[in-house]
Nucleic acid binder design. Structure first.
Length: 156
DNA sequence: GCCAACGTTGGC
DNA sequence: GCCAACGTTGGC
């Protein structure tokens, strides 16, 4: 029996790691997530093959710029153990790692950016609870329904 | 660069 | 366990 594919949206600042960077490296460990809710989605919710909307945040035109897939089960984020890393967490141990991640694999770049502005104009179709357009939302990883995923990509 | 909206930390 | 202070996110 095959479990149904799930869908997610993952934010990245293009200056730090863009869709072009993902295309170049093909597979990337999604390190640096230091928010428990986002971690829980990766650790407990994601499965290999799940669909990912790749979103550029904190940039001139924030929006969805590509798609990717989940390419691994969750495993500990190495950067938490590295004192030289920006993501170092002195309270985390190898015996009980605090932060987990998954590998993300490039799928495709969209022909154009589906901007946040445009997404907001489709709020009625996406539902008021859609995390991206909910006021004050800062989650960098969150679930998207199959219908939302399909609808967002149909805007391309 | 500003700042609202959060999440986390730590003193008490 | 409260909550002020602090740090971060991310749109604008």
């Amino acid at each position: 029996m095959t479990a149904r594919r799930r869908y997610w949206l993952m934010k990245s600042e293009p200056e730090a790691f863009s869709i072009d960077d993902l295309q170049r490296v093909d597979i990337e460990p999604w390190n640096g997530v230091r928010n428990y809710q986002a971690r829980n989605f990766m650790r407990d919710g994601m499965r290999v093959g799940d669909g990912v909307l790749f979103y550029h945040s904190n940039t001139a035109v924030p929006g969805i710029v590509g798609t990717a897939t989940v390419a691994s089960e969750a495993y500990p984020d190495e950067t938490q153990f590295d004192p030289k890393s920006d993501y170092h967490d002195p309270k985390s141990t190898r015996e009980e790692p605090r932060w987990h991640l998954v590998d993300i694999k490039f799928e495709r770049k969209l022909s154009r950016t589906i901007s946040l502005d445009e997404i907001k104009r489709h709020a009625d179709r996406l539902g008021e609870e859609f995390a991206l357009i909910r006021r004050g939302n800062r989650l960098s990883v969150f679930p998207v329904s199959a219908a939302q995923y399909k609808y967002l990509l149909s805007l391309e």
